[in-house]
Amino acid sequence: MSSPPVGYLAAPDQPWNVQHYLDGKVGYVLGLLWQHLWLSVLPVVIGLIIALPIGYAAKRFKWTYTPLVTISGLLYTIPSLALFVVIPSVIGTQILDPINVVIPLTIYTIALMVRVIADGLRSVDETVLQAASAMGYSRFQRLLKVELPIAIPVIGAGLRVAVVANVGMVAVAAVIGVPQLGTLFSYGKDLFYYAPIVVGLVLSVALAFALDLLIVLAVRALTPWRKAVAAR
């Protein structure tokens, strides 16, 4: 099969038959899943990298905390649909360019993570910071080797929310035509064909669940000390 079987065909005879729908389309669906995966994860990675210095600034310079956290929080209130539609004309990309999805979702990740990072860093005990400085850690070393490792559980919790929210929001990008699992929803909706919707739904829930689990496991692996704390 050369072109994707998406198009305005007649309503199928068996709208709920998943097996029938998947016949010959497994590769295509897996392709959408792969698209969905990286469209969800990449913005979280970029967003985290951008949010780290902002969150650190909010913690380091106390007076910036409220404005930074408020402004980044406000970003979250912009409807995703509006961003998906507006971004291409603002930055001049092609309408089907995946960047149009990556940028809005990165903005949402930043919106969420600035506060999380600032709060995570603020949760590090003052005596620990003092001891680290007194032992000769520079500010940067201290951030890298003491503050961030201790903030991992808080940052990890934030990332879980961000990544799961992104998996859901990527699907909305179907309206601008960037292919991913959401494509199956609009296709199924147009044809009253429920099987692709079921497939898309199951796969995106599974994807969200898997990514969430991955973060949980990563946090657990990076913070063996928390298990020790919990055991007390």
Partner: peptide
């Protein structure tokens, strides 16, 4: 430099200030 100075001076504080993430 403060880093050099501090590495040559032991420092003990009230609540020990141990790094919770290290053994």
């Amino acid at each position: 430099s403060t880093s050099k100075l501090r590495r040559g001076i032991g420092y003990v504080i009230q609540h020990a200030g141990l790094f919770p993430h290290r053994t």
